[in-house]
Design a protein around this nucleic acid. Structure first.
Lengths: 239, 239
DNA sequence: GTTAGATTCAAACAACTGTTTGAATCATGC
DNA sequence: GCATGATTCAAACAGTTGTTTGAATCTAAC
């Protein structure tokens, strides 16, 4: 006899997953701090106490929701980068490194089993939300991957000082986090809605050339305001 | 007889300004939503009810704090851009347009009368914080300036399709907001602390070449996944 | 000195937060 | 059937939030 009339395998595990799904969607819509446990349990159609029973606290729920997405994503990014470097002979071009940074996120968003593009916006929120939740948690998830990409980019642009590279990676992550945060931030400034805002692949196709050019840009003149010369617009290696 | 022993001119206006100052500093440190009225009134050394008496509500306080900074900043940006265009003969180079976007913010942060770099981080927070406070308010402050800069950038890069320009402006604002948000977001990802993170001028000097190169980057190939050719790395006008 | 209005203050308000409790319910082993 | 442990549930907990109240205080004009 199929002991349960419903579809759920175990009684406990289904509410656990329903909580994760409800929390993820609500976090994406409203942010982490602004979402209450009562909203989450209401959407998940479970009792309020279920969160503390299954996860211990709201903070632990947030961590679990993030870890479920961030961990695999950064692993995939690093693996993608490893594979590219193993196949190539010399150092990778910047565009390929950016590909390793963006394509795994794109694939994640395209997976119909997961809730698609909501995942990307969730990650964007993780960076937008300041303060307590992320302060100690996110870095551990990202530091390894960030160091790995800094190393690859350093090989691709050996002429670029490390301090300059660190800053340009910051700018890069800023642009990425901004578009991943979703409509909220995008509509804030734009006079008109950007086209294809809901198509991650289209965004990536526009983002890579932008970032590649920025990362490889000639460095600024050391001090005074003399405008960059035309010669300065050529990559250093050509000089 | 100097009717008041203290320095304050009017009794009411001083607590009003003390509230604005305390709120601004706390908003910058903790964000808007996470800062309670009791924290604000405690730091300002005024009664709790003073906020609702002088401003009506917390939301109105937030708006007032932002408007006091965002309004003049965006006015200065547009004026700077107007002056550059009036002096130049043809269309402005992208670097000058970015200069108009960034230098007024830099000057604001350098003003010792204001609380210096705290202002920049406050503005960064305004973009980082999702949800209710900004949704209806920030756009009005920014839409005019954003349209003005889009127009200038369009003139500087007439070959660039408008849809592409809108997206690249988004990327640009993302990078700017990210570095303006301050240490929180920066330390999140970096394996090591970026140098001169507290020196706005140094950041701008690094940011302009990055963004200028990104904005003027060659556009991506239209569809299929063929890796960008070497010819594709040249600007369109050279084709 | 008295009066009128603006400002401050302590106290309470209602609504919400995350968390805990203890009994009820369930599935499942014996 | 019965007992055991896991899970659910309604209810309450203690704490914080933004806001309101009504009396007390201050300022300034008459």
């Amino acid at each position: 006899m199929a002991s349960v009339g419903r579809s759920g395998p175990k009684p406990g595990v289904e509410t656990r997953e329903r909580l994760l799904a409800a929390a993820e969607s609500l976090f994406m819509e409203q942010g982490f701090r602004s979402t209450s446990l009562r909203e989450i349990t209401a959407r998940a159609k479970v009792n309020l106490a279920a969160v503390n029973y299954h996860f211990g606290s709201k903070d632990a729920l947030v961590r679990e929701v993030l870890q479920r997405r961030l961990g695999p994503l950064n692993e995939a990014r690093v693996q993608y980068l490893d594979r590219l470097e193993a196949e190539a002979s010399g150092p990778l071009p910047v565009e390929r490194i950016l590909e390793a940074l963006l394509l795994p996120a794109l694939r994640l968003s395209r997976n119909p089993l997961e809730h698609g593009s909501t995942v990307l916006r969730l990650l964007g929120r993780a960076f937008s939300e300041p303060g307590d939740y992320m302060k100690d948690f996110l870095p551990d998830q990202y530091r390894v991957a960030a160091r790995r990409f800094q190393q690859a980019l350093g090989r691709a642009m050996p002429h670029l000082p490390e301090s300059e590279l660190v800053w340009r990676m910051h700018f890069t992550f800023g642009a990425i986090a901004y578009v991943m945060a979703g409509d909220d931030a995008l509509q804030l400034v734009a006079s008109c809605q950007a086209p294809e805002a809901d198509n991650p692949e289209a965004i990536v196709r526009r983002l890579v050339p932008f970032l590649a050019a920025g990362l490889q840009a000639p460095t600024a003149p050391p001090l005074d305001g003399s405008p960059p010369t035309l010669a300065g617009t050529l990559p250093r290696r050509a000089a």
